[in-house]
Design a protein around this nucleic acid. Sequence first.
DNA 1: ACCAGTTTGTTCATACTAGCACAAGCGCGC
DNA 2: GCGCGCTTGTGCTAGTATGAACAAACTGGT
Lengths: 207, 207
Amino acid sequence: MALDQHEVPDIVVGRLPVYLRALSAMKSGGKQYTSSHELAEWLGISSAQIRKDLSHFGEFGKQGTGYSVIGLYDELRQILHLDQDWPLIIVGAGNIGSAVASYTGFSHRGFRVVGLFDNDPTKIGAQIGGLTVQSNNEIPQFVADSHTQHAMITVPAQYAQQVADILVASGIKAILNYAPINLNVPHNVHVEYIDPVLHLQKMTYYL
Amino acid sequence: MALDQHEVPDIVVGRLPVYLRALSAMKSGGKQYTSSHELAEWLGISSAQIRKDLSHFGEFGKQGTGYSVIGLYDELRQILHLDQDWPLIIVGAGNIGSAVASYTGFSHRGFRVVGLFDNDPTKIGAQIGGLTVQSNNEIPQFVADSHTQHAMITVPAQYAQQVADILVASGIKAILNYAPINLNVPHNVHVEYIDPVLHLQKMTYYL
DNA sequence: ACCAGTTTGTTCATACTAGCACAAGCGCGC
DNA sequence: GCGCGCTTGTGCTAGTATGAACAAACTGGT
Ligand SMILES: NC(=O)c1ccc[n+]([C@@H]2O[C@H](COP(=O)([O-])OP(=O)(O)OC[C@H]3O[C@@H](n4cnc5c(N)ncnc54)[C@H](O)[C@@H]3O)[C@@H](O)[C@H]2O)c1
Ligand SMILES: NC(=O)c1ccc[n+]([C@@H]2O[C@H](COP(=O)([O-])OP(=O)(O)OC[C@H]3O[C@@H](n4cnc5c(N)ncnc54)[C@H](O)[C@@H]3O)[C@@H](O)[C@H]2O)c1
């Protein structure tokens, strides 16, 4: 029964959302109980890893039975602070920004897109995914008023850093960057990256 | 001077595209030489790691000078088999599939989108990103004719597995899956995943 | 030619990660 | 009540990854 007194490894935290995603699918499928073995096969990893990962946070299973799907789902949501809806803004209303803004997959997983920004005057005012595109100038005020801590950057690479600077100055604490460039931010701001080409290139090594 | 007789760790292979991306930016900036220290600071990792990663493949630097940007760039492209353009198909011509199909960022990084497929009759025949949307039925023949080995899946989660099965049966060897679900494929087929929500959820743990 | 400054490739020690294996616990059927 | 089959949580071991440190090597200036 190890509680999170000790630091939980980053790599473990990164797997929790994957477990949550699988549990969500099981829940939708009407499944009531699962086991570390079943989850492991589902996800293609070892069952011991799942048990050990979860043991960082408490004891959620029952010997002989396994885990209650809904029970573990709720526990993980709490651990990840997803038992609330986090507001989220997107900067860059281009191809990918528009697609993401229209994406309905955030709502049941802890996030809600509340703002979409661009600096192109011809785009400001347009309606995309139920949102009105706003000017970059509105970002600081909007972030403050809405208490938003999450942002996605979907602008061309050469503008990504300046957008990041605006976001950091506005109080954003977590940035998901789609632009293929590494960002410089203070240590208390978290950044993650999405670049499909990186994945493709990695796989190509093995072909 | 360790050549790749021994197995190169997967995690190392995964970093090579990141190095390549940074080198590409330096190249565009007109930079001629760089060092492991400069790259490390740029990317926020340790310089020793960069040197050791590269040492798996050969000796590309010169003491006192560092690395030729173009030289290392070309070496990495060869190592990753990116000194050619790989054809790439996309299945699912919805929001995200259309955005990706229109993305111009593949062309200079080793890939070229050559086909876009959907099973919705109202979408087949449409023009998106310079491509004509084709029916799923065309996939096997198209893949065979074009010798395509890379595919991206951008269909709703519940159809992702069946699309993956079609792709595997058609001869695709590398799949980048945007749907939030784990795929079952033979061991000789590589799969990578992109799910923005996973990244957001991970960062939320620390907030 | 030599020295000072720099940077590589590699060695070595430390830290981290993954998975085996098993005691302890639970449920079910008889 | 009792035994059998199953599953958890964790100690331990083996395997991996990381980063500090350093000898060797190269450059440029004097
Ligand atoms: N489209 C894709 O599939 C895809 C995939 C991976 C990565 N990306 C990356 O995502 C980013 C956007 O790609 P895209 O295809 O949507 O490009 P895009 O040109 O369609 O959209 C970019 C948008 O950003 C806006 N913009 C530019 N500078 C800005 C600024 N300073 N502040 C606010 N808005 C600004 C532009 O007005 C435009 O609307 C790029 O960095 C690209 O490399 C795109
Ligand atoms: N839009 C985003 O920003 C975003 C982000 C992350 C992940 N995703 C994921 O990407 C996928 C697509 O999202 P979207 O927003 O583009 O959805 P969408 O509904 O706009 O597009 C899905 C497309 O797939 C097609 N399709 C359905 N079944 C098919 C099949 N069997 N064969 C071929 N085509 C088929 C549909 O006709 C439609 O055109 C989803 O799994 C979603 O979860 C989307």
